[in-house]
């Protein structure tokens, strides 16, 4: 298997070349083009119940696709994965560790990676991230995408992240929701609810937020 993230960072997309017999798992809507002999199989994203919960509470798609180049194919299958928002993608390696992903960040993963659904809690809901999060663990490669650039950040002391910017984090970090300042400045200063994150651990941030885009769009529609 070979892979490459192209057109970085603004319009990143992922190319995966699967040799016969190889496969990856991808977000249901991520596949943009593929060789004719590629086989797509849809399955529940994190089990039936988890998929339904994520659909209702997290706004996620119900299915993920298993994308395979069947054994005996005439050659490697080249598959292009894209994301809905303009932005970067990064490749992360899991070797026995776990990562939590927020809604929409997951693009694809290799076979050794297991996808699960984990309760994210009220803090996550208040931060605009939904009640459930995707848990990726095991060994292999995970590709995640974000809106704008993606920057990893190692957390030791508490940091404050505006809601909508956190896309992935290690399970060792603790996340609480809170107000950016006092109640007054929070409601009138436009920052509102933020996430207070304490380490140790690493988080991945996207530089832009969909909320920001929605607000900007609304202000131009009216």
């Amino acid at each position: 298997m070979e892979s490459e993230i192209r057109s970085r960072p603004a319009f990143a997309h992922l190319m995966v070349r699967l040799n016969p017999g190889e496969s990856v798992t991808a977000e249901a809507g991520a596949m943009a083009s593929m060789s004719a002999w590629t086989r797509l199989t849809a399955r529940w994203n994190g089990g039936f119940f988890g998929a339904i919960m994520r659909r209702i509470f997290g706004g996620e798609t119900l299915f993920v696709n298993d994308v395979a180049c069947p054994a005996g194919s005439p050659g490697p299958a080249e598959v292009i994965f894209t994301q809905a928002t303009p932005g970067d993608m990064v490749e992360l390696t899991l070797d026995g560790n776990t990562l939590f992903l927020q809604s929409g960040a997951f693009i694809a993963a290799t076979n050794g990676v297991s996808l699960g659904v984990a309760w994210a809690g009220i803090a996550s809901l208040l931060g605009g991230e939904g009640l459930f999060r995707l848990k990726v663990s095991g060994r292999g490669t995970v590709w995640i995408g974000g809106y704008g650039a993606i920057t990893p950040r190692q957390i030791d002391q508490e940091v404050i992240v505006d809601s909508g910017h956190l896309i992935a984090y290690e399970p060792t970090v603790k996340i609480r929701s809170g107000l950016a300042g006092g109640i007054f400045s929070s409601f009138f200063g436009g920052e509102g609810i933020v996430m207070r994150i304490t380490g140790p651990g690493r988080i991945y941030l996207q530089t832009r937020s969909l909320e920001g885009l929605a607000a900007w769009t609304n202000s131009h529609l009216l």
Partner: peptide, 23 residues
Amino acid sequence: FGGATGRMLFLRGAEPRLTLFSE
């Protein structure tokens, strides 16, 4: 205890740069 779920156990000793963890 801490972490994203609150059930992650962190272990620290005399060496400040070393942390073990498990859930």
